[in-house]
Every structure is written in structure tokens, then in C-alpha cells.
Computed example of a mutant assay.
Amino acid sequence: MDRLTNTVRRYAWGSTTALPGLTGAKPDGTPQAELWMGAHPTAPSLVERGDGPRSLGAVIEEAPGAELGEAVLRRFGPRLPFLLKLLAAEAPLSLQVHPDLAQAAAGHARENARGIPLDAPHRTYPDANHKPEMIVALGAFDGLCGFRTAAGCADLLGALRVARLDRHRVALRALPEETALRQVFSAFLTPHRSLVAEVTRAVAREAACPGPFREQFAAYETIARAHPGDAGLLPALMLNHVRLAPGEGLFLGAGVPHAYIRGLGVEVMAGSDNVLRCGLTSKHVDTAELLRVIRFAATEVRVERPVAVTGGEEVYACAVDDFRLSVVRPGALGPEVTLDAAAPQILVCTSGTVRVTGADGSLDLPAGASAYAPAGEPLTVSGSGTAYRATVDIAFP
């Protein structure tokens, strides 16, 4: 078992106070958006095994069978298949989707053939992996996830009382749902600047008035203030607004459009940087590729809550085997929680202090601290805190 030294990613949308508040550190006035825990080559965690700090990725590469276990090695190759993060959004993130495995592999090969450097800012597919993800709120958390029904989109647009949107409302009600969502979403990707300004004013007006969409319009007003004049506001109106309470989660699969608006959470994902954006960002936007990948289907938002399993873990349902996310609260179901050793695992403490005990001793993890254990090393967790555990679901499906 290793204590991890992790990298803070200082993206502009990050909070200046949320991560310091969780860890007890003094804020330095700069945005702290994400704390990465894992072996992703962009910002790998470091471990200390007696010969100085080393990248977790390098440690796994040297002895993949010992670190990952044979089942994970056979399924995913010599790499840790998940990345765990603490995410702190003060401003809305980009409107985006992620590809499935086949789309990622094809896109990666296509860009390699075109000679686009892997670290080029206009690269869409830096790797050949998919990027399903799950976010679990540590406080109130707002986001957008999946398309409303076509009729639901028409109702919301109608509430804005903007005459220039009427033809889109008609299309949403007249056409088959997939066709309607595709046609209107595509049109919204390149609206006239004056329409964006008119919709922005209407959103602000309706957010201040009683009505069935007031909470949704308040969320869209937050987006408009953070990204003034950005055309991404219009397609964002077609997505479901979701507000998570602490401990509630949201799983995001391939092709599902989404954006986080504000909040602090634990996020786990497959190890990938493949993000296709269409607005609300200063990063590379690739609307043509996004339109090939996005799934034009209404999504019923499913808020996930953890389910208790044998041993004291509470597990969130995830529709992939790249990762398995659970929450561990020693003291709630007994003095300690025993965790199996079937696959490599990372634990991060999010409140209080937990003691993690493995084959070679114990580590005390205060809030914000994390530990890694290779496959084959069972752990017990005690103390009075809360920890989230990311591992690989080798029993899936």
C-alpha cells in the first residue's frame, strides 16, 4: 500500500476555496479544479517505495501482473483502467460528449494518420479509449445531462417567449423525436449572435419570475453569465438540468451530452482524455465530430444512490467494468470495513480521518489524502471518516 502524492489541475473553471476547504489547506487565490489520483500520463500520482518518488504509471509498467492482477491485465492490458478525481467547479464546464470504444479507436487512428501531435490543442482523440464517468456529489451539485424529450424542449423554449425560436418549437413537435432533436440541436450550434443575446436576456428574465422552469432557467443564467455571448447556451437549453444532493451520483455513458455547472464531487472515469466539445469553453471545439458521436435520444435522468453490500461498502451502479465506485464509512456498519483484494484500488478520504491497514502497516488519511493498493493486498478501513474507493469491477456484468 502506498500513500499517493497527487497533482492539482488549475483550470479556469475551478473553485478557489472548495478543495482547500476539504483538505484544510490555505487557499492561494488561484482556481483548483481537479485533484487527480491514478496513473494517467498527463498527471500521474507519485508513490514512494524507498528509491524516491516515482510515477504510479511507471511502477505498474514495470510489474503489471503484480500490480494489476492477472484478471485486470488480461482485460485491459498493462495499465490502470480508471482515474479517480476530486472535482471542484465554480463555473460551468464545457458542453461535451465522449466517444464509445469503437469511435475512439477510429478517431485516434485517423488523427495519427494525419500527423496531429498527441498534445496538440486541436487534437480531438489523444487516445483510443472510451471515457464513461460517474460523478458523486459531496455537496449541492448542479449539472446538465442528456436530452430532454422533444416536447420538453419545445415547452421550455416556449416559456422564453422569443419569437425567433418558434420555428424550432414547431419542428420539435412535428418531427420524429430523433430527427427533431438532431435538427434543432444542429441549428443551435451556429446561431446568429443577436439570437444568443436575445435568449440570454429572456433566460435572465424568466429566472427571476415564478414558473415551472424557474430553477432550470436559474441554472442556464449561471451558464450565460460565465460564458457571455457563447452560442453553447442554446444547445444547453435542450439538456436536462439535474441537481444532486450529497452522496447522490450520476453515470454518464458514451454519446450523452453533459456539462457540470457548479459543485464539489468525487469523479471516477475510464482513463481517457477524449472529449468532444461544442461550446461553453475556450478549448478546441469540434462540432462536426461531436455530431457524429452524440446520441440524439431523450434521456431520463437516473440519480444513483449507493447500495450496501457485504462487508460494509456501499456501491454505486455503473454500466461498465473499467471502474467500480463505492463509499466506505467505518463506524456506521461496524468498527471497520474489510475490502477485497481482487483488483488494484485507490481510496480517498473526503471527511474526517480514516485509517487504512494493509499487509505492510497502516496509513492515516485525513480529508483529501489518498492511498493505492495493488491487487492481492486486502485492506481494512477504520476510523470516523468517509472514504471513496475506486477499483475495477472484474465481476461485471
Rank of each mutant, 00 (worst) to 15 (best):
H122Y: 11
R173S: 11
N240E: 10
S55P: 12
Y11P: 08
G14R: 00
F147A: 11
L325D: 05
Y372D: 15
A332M: 13
H108A: 13
V8H: 02
E215T: 14
V381F: 10
A71L: 06
E90Y: 02
V242F: 01
V328W: 09
G21Q: 06
Y372I: 15
V97P: 02
T179G: 11
T23Y: 09
T149L: 12
P92A: 08
D230E: 09
L181W: 02
R302C: 13
G211M: 06
L189I: 07
H130L: 09
P246V: 13
C349D: 03
R123A: 14
Y260I: 15
A66Q: 15
E221A: 15
A120E: 12
L83N: 00
G247N: 12
G255D: 11
I135R: 02
V196N: 07
G146A: 10
H40I: 05
V256E: 08
I60H: 09
R389G: 03
G115E: 05
I135Q: 06
P31N: 03
L239W: 00
T17F: 08
K85N: 01
A140C: 04
L86I: 15
R74V: 00
G352H: 08
V47D: 15
H192N: 03
G152V: 04
C349I: 05
D321Q: 10
E304M: 05
A18V: 03
A174Q: 14
D142V: 04
A226S: 15
R205Y: 00
F217P: 04
M238G: 09
L264K: 02
A226R: 00
G50P: 09
V354K: 11
P212M: 13
E62W: 02
R295Y: 08
P330D: 09
G263Q: 07
F396M: 00
A43S: 14
L365H: 06
R305T: 15
A395Y: 07
P31Q: 02
H168C: 12
P81Y: 02
R193Q: 14
Q345C: 15
N240Q: 09
D142G: 05
A154C: 10
A207S: 13
P78L: 01
T179P: 04
